[in-house]
Design a protein around this nucleic acid. Structure first.
Lengths: 113, 113
DNA sequence: ACTTGATACAACCGTATGGTTGTATTTCGA
DNA sequence: TCGAAATACAACCATACGGTTGTATCAAGT
């Protein structure tokens, strides 16, 4: 299994569409084929097919042959990678707050003396 | 302060660009004006301006007049909202795993009797 | 008041994106 | 083996996106 580096442009790009997020949600808690998924949306089969392809390229879902159809499964690891990046940004923020707090503390201690 | 419902299309769309993620990162741990930010990227001032506008519409940064320029500040709450959604998807996944595990348990218990 | 620095915004251009329809290709069931 | 179901893919269209240049606004400093 080849571990490609996460492509955040594709990941967030894939998540930036309501239909695709809904497909992802469905893929998370059930196993439907492309045609079944397509029935849920007011657009052509081919359009849904393309959305699934986008999610697949982003590493958020995979397709598996089951009988005569292909079942779409979510790839949680992809979600984790994306969430982790956002977490890092928030961590960066915390770090900055800490630095500021420390500066203020040093300053007030100096003023105390 | 008016609390608008989060627009995930815009949020993830804003995050789906390397330059914008970098601007966000910079906005998180320093305070730079639009012009200063623009110096870091191999593109025109106007292009960077547009990227910042996208981040702003997505609720990920805000602009504040400071002296004669406008400083770009990150809005961590926006990041949190986005990360939380991803967390909910992962939670959904855990829920499904739990249901499957329980099914298996009930099945094997039945077989035990 | 005038100049200058910093930002905003409009118009334009090429390419990507989200949708469509139509035509293969594959695989199961009779 | 043949028909039909499920999927894939190409061609096309309208609109959005990321970039450009040019012009306008707006606040500071002299």
């Amino acid at each position: 299994m080849q571990m490609v580096p996460p492509d955040f442009d594709r990941m967030f790009g894939a998540l930036a569409d309501h239909t695709r997020r809904d497909i992802l949600r469905r893929a998370i808690d059930s196993e439907e084929g492309v045609a079944e998924l397509a029935t849920h949306y007011p657009m052509s089969f081919a359009a849904v097919q393309k959305h699934i392809a986008v999610l697949e390229r982003a590493g958020l879902v995979t397709k598996h042959q089951v009988g005569r159809r292909k079942v779409v499964r979510s790839n949680v690891e992809g979600l984790r990678v994306a969430r982790r990046l956002l977490g890092q940004y928030e961590e960066l923020w915390r770090g900055r707050i800490d630095r500021m707090t420390q500066l203020v503390n040093e300053y007030t201690r100096e003023a105390d003396q």
